[in-house]
């Protein structure tokens, strides 16, 4: 399965809905999307990963890159994920301490700290 991406605005947040597999082949598309959003002035991003079937370290690298970009503008990058197999990768790499991970888009959109 390829990667699907769609964006929508909720208040001052931009929600990026990601579906499919994020790996060495598809991760550049996600990177482009995040770079484009930041270049267009969207600094508060919510990446909804509920539709993601597979995530590897290349995908993690892109998310970390996105976080660095929004932080340069005092922005935020929040993740939405409930899937144990995806969460496990964040835990193994210690990235649960780096990304705020929410159980729903509503929760992520209304989070302030």
């Amino acid at each position: 399965m390829d990667l699907s991406l769609s964006t929508r605005t909720v208040g001052d947040r931009t929600v990026v809905e990601v579906g499919g597999e994020i790996d060495v082949y598809t991760a550049p598309k996600l990177r482009e999307q995040l770079v484009e959003l930041v270049n267009d002035g969207s600094y508060h991003l919510v990446v909804d990963m509920e539709g993601v079937d597979f995530l590897d370290s290349t995908g993690l690298g892109v998310l970390v890159g996105g976080l660095k970009r929004v932080r340069a503008h005092e922005g935020s990058l929040r993740l939405v994920c409930n899937q144990e197999r995806i969460l496990k990768i964040f835990r193994i790499t210690g990235l649960t301490k780096v990304f705020p991970i929410h159980t729903s888009v509503d929760d992520a959109v209304s989070a302030t700290d």
């Binding site: 060495v24 991760a27 550049p28 990177r31 590897d56 370290s57 290349t58 993690l60 690298g61 892109v62 890159g65 990768i89 193994i92 790499t93």
Partner: peptide, 23 residues
């Protein structure tokens, strides 16, 4: 700067190995 595709980047190479050793 950032590699165009990341796969060859040292940081991501290290992260890949970190994931493998964690798994």
């Amino acid at each position: 700067g950032e590699p165009s595709r990341g796969a060859g980047g040292d940081e991501e190479d290290d992260m890949g190995l970190a994931v493998i050793s964690g798994l």
